[in-house]
Design a protein around this nucleic acid. Structure first.
Lengths: 205, 205
DNA sequence: CCGAAACTGAACCAATTGGTTTACATTATC
DNA sequence: GATAATGTAAACCAATTGGTTCAGTTTCGG
């Protein structure tokens, strides 16, 4: 359907992307050297440069692929006959778990770092992450089942508030290395508190 | 009181720090070259290296100074005879304004980017920013005036929830370049919604 | 107005950067 | 088993990097 933009050819393509992913996530764009990427990917520099015209395109290819993967993240919602409150708890728990995951943290870190240098990257990340989840949550909040229990004027904002509540306490602590791997109990607590606050505001009276 | 750690000597010290600040904030650590910093500071490289032993120490000096400045940020609270609700609104408005300010965004961006490479930086930033404000807000929430109106078990968590609610919608949009300079009306709206949600949960019944 | 401290500009260094090329090896596929 | 696509390793490139040195100016306190 789309012209592959004269990128990608041979069989070691995935190796290259994978190696680049590793190094870029660890070192950032400027911190990562092409030699190191090639070494880590177990591939010669010539091969690498036969796939991508330069470092920028390689970087963007990696980030693009990661954003696509990020867009696929599913937080099981609406699964069966859960109550609205239970559903919200499930949503929050999966959100928090993702925020604190290595993948989620790495993505966030390098996209924050490089959104200036690569303006389109910022938009891509935002669209495939926060925006997409916000939309999805808002969709649920607008569903009949939820509307029976909740009363919300601006569901998009409400969805974002819920997501932000999920970042309480833990998110920044992990991001700045204050805490490494929060116990599940702590995650459950934050999720529970997020739902409580959310329902206090939006539960139908 | 403290040994100045054989850093800092002469009259152009501030120029150097200022130039370094500019370039580091714009380019990040790896992206910033010492030559560019010296140029921007209007100072010879020799002078620069007479102040700091190497690039790392210069970077850390800048960030340390910025963190100190960050710690001084005051969101006027408890100012006079405002009601609790009014006070919360003032807190939120100043928080949001800071989050969206050039300084706040730059600090957040480079600290997120480099917290891996400079682990102590992450802690310093977190302590002088989020943690300090959280403590301060919690202090207010624990005050008699606030306690008369609010009922909170975990004031530190509540404070953090409030701060997170202030990041709804706008924070990530600005961080990733989707929106440049949100109008004051929008800021007020987010602040208002944050307070509403907060009070819904924690107002004494 | 002198002497010392601070500062400059430019040359210099070894190492590394992103990127190219060449001469040879490994794969597939038919 | 020939052929053409993919791959390799290493040498090579010019440019830039962080960092040093030094002979010469500027600045300023006493």
């Amino acid at each position: 359907m789309n012209a592959p933009a004269q990128i990608k050819k041979g069989r070691k393509f995935d190796q290259v992307i994978e190696g680049a992913r590793t190094v870029f996530m660890r070192e950032g764009y400027e911190g990562a050297s092409v030699d190191e990427i090639a070494r880590d990917a177990g591939v010669s520099k010539a091969t690498l440069y036969s796939y991508f015209p330069d470092k920028q395109h390689l970087f963007l290819a990696v980030l693009q692929s990661e954003c696509a993967q990020q867009a696929e993240v599913e937080f099981l919602m609406d699964a069966g006959d859960l109550s609205v409150e239970e559903t919200l708890r499930v949503i929050c728990t999966s959100l928090i778990t993702f925020f604190l995951s290595t993948f989620g943290q790495d993505m966030f870190r390098v996209c924050v770092a490089e959104a200036q240098r690569f303006p389109e990257l910022g938009r891509t990340f935002y669209d495939s992450g926060p925006k997409k989840w916000g939309r999805k949550i808002a969709l649920y909040l607008d569903s009949p089942k939820a509307r029976a229990v909740l009363e919300i004027e601006d569901t998009l904002l409400a969805a974002d508030q819920l997501a932000q509540l999920c970042r309480a306490d833990l998110m920044l602590k992990v991001l700045f290395g204050i805490e490494k791997d929060p116990p599940e109990a702590e995650i459950d607590r934050i999720a529970s508190e997020a739902v409580k606050t959310f329902l206090a505001r939006y539960r139908r009276r």
